[in-house]
C-alpha cells in the first residue's frame, strides 16, 4: 500500500499541475494498447462534441485545479466583466460565511486575496493583466496554484458547513463522518480527492455551473454505448447565483474514475 502510493506520487510528479491543451485524439491513443472497445467507442462519441483535453496532475487536487484553470481561462477569453463582478460578490459572501462559522480571518484572507488577484489579472487592459501563456505558467507555479486550490477548499468547506442539513445525507452516503469531520478530513486538507459533494458545494457557493462528462467502461444492457454527463447547476437562493434555469455550463470537466481533466467543446 505505502509503496503503491509512493509510486503513484512519483508518477504524478511527471505531469505538471496543469498540462498543455492536447487534441482529443491523444485520449484515444492512451487506450489503444489496452483496447477497451467500450472506452474507444465512447471517446469517438466525445470527439464529435469536444476538440481538446487539458490534463491535470493526479495529486488529489485535480478537480479544484481543473476548475481553477478552466474558470480563469474562460474569463481571459470571454472578458466577461459582468461574470467577474458577479463572482466577486459571491466570493465576498463566502468570506462572510467563513467569518460567521468562526474561522479566524488570518487563516483564509491570504488565499482569498490570491484568488482575487488572479481574477483581476485575467481581465485585460490593466498593468497587472496577463496572457494565456502566463496563466498556464502561474497554474504550474506551486506558490500560486496551490493557494488558489486552497481558496476553493475554504469556499467549499464554508458552503457545506453553512448548509449542513442539505449536505448531511450526501455525506452520510460517502462516509460515517459528521459534516464537521468530513470538512476537516476530506475538504480542507490539500490532496484530498473531490466527490459530487465538493463539486455541488463549490458550484453553489460561486454560482458557477459545471458540466462533468463521465468516461468509464459502463454500457447499456442492450450493448449500445453513450456518454453520460451531469450538469451541476447552482441552486437559486444563493445570492447572485445564476438561478437554476437551464444554463449552459462554460466549464466542462472529463471524469475518469479517480481523476478530472478539462475538456474543450468544438
Amino acid at each position: 500500500m505505502q509503496q503503491q502510493s509512493a509510486i503513484q506520487a512519483e508518477e504524478a510528479e511527471k505531469i505538471p499541475f496543469v498540462g498543455d491543451k492536447e487534441p482529443l485524439s491523444s485520449l484515444a491513443a492512451e487506450y489503444k494498447a489496452g483496447g477497451s472497445p467500450v472506452l474507444l467507442e465512447k471517446i469517438k462519441i466525445l470527439s464529435e462534441q469536444y476538440a481538446a483535453i487539458r490534463r491535470t496532475r493526479g495529486d488529489g487536487n485535480c478537480f479544484f485545479r481543473s476548475f481553477m484553470f478552466a474558470y480563469l481561462e474562460h474569463i481571459l477569453e470571454s472578458q466577461d466583466r459582468a461574470e467577474v463582478d458577479r463572482v466577486r460578490a459571491n466570493v465576498e459572501e463566502c468570506r462572510r460565511t467563513l467569518q460567521k462559522l468562526g474561522y479566524p480571518e488570518f487563516t483564509f484572507e491570504d488565499f482569498f486575496a490570491l484568488f482575487l488577484e488572479q481574477l483581476e489579472s485575467v481581465i485585460q487592459g490593466s498593468e497587472a493583466s496577463i496572457s494565456d501563456e502566463e496563466l498556464v505558467k502561474r497554474s504550474r507555479d506551486q506558490s500560486v496554484s496551490d493557494y488558489v486550490v486552497m481558496f476553493f477548499r475554504f469556499v467549499t468547506s464554508g458552503e457545506i458547513r453553512k448548509r449542513s442539513e442539505f449536505f448531511e445525507p450526501f455525506i452520510l452516503g460517502l462516509t460515517s463522518a459528521s459534516v464537521e469531520q468530513f470538512c476537516k478530513s476530506a475538504v480542507e486538507p490539500m490532496g484530498e480527492e473531490s466527490d459530487h459533494v465538493h463539486i455541488t458545494a463549490l458550484s453553489d457557493a460561486l454560482g458557477v455551473p459545471i458540466r462533468v462528462v463521465y468516461l468509464d467502461r459502463s454500457s447499456c444492457d442492450n450493448g449500445s454505448v453513450s456518454v453520460n454527463h451531469h450538469d451541476f447547476t447552482p441552486v437559486a437562493g444563493n445570492n447572485n447565483s445564476g438561478g437554476s434555469e437551464a444554463v449552459n455550463p462554460f466549464i466542462t470537466l472529463l471524469y475518469r474514475p479517480g481523476h478530472y481533466d478539462i475538456l474543450y467543446p468544438k
Binding site: 483564509f108 478530513s185 480542507e188 490539500m190
Partner: peptide
C-alpha cells in the same frame, strides 16, 4: 501530518 490543513492554526 496527513490531515494537516492551512485552515488550522
Amino acid at each position: 501530518y496527513d490531515s494537516w490543513s492551512p485552515a488550522m492554526t
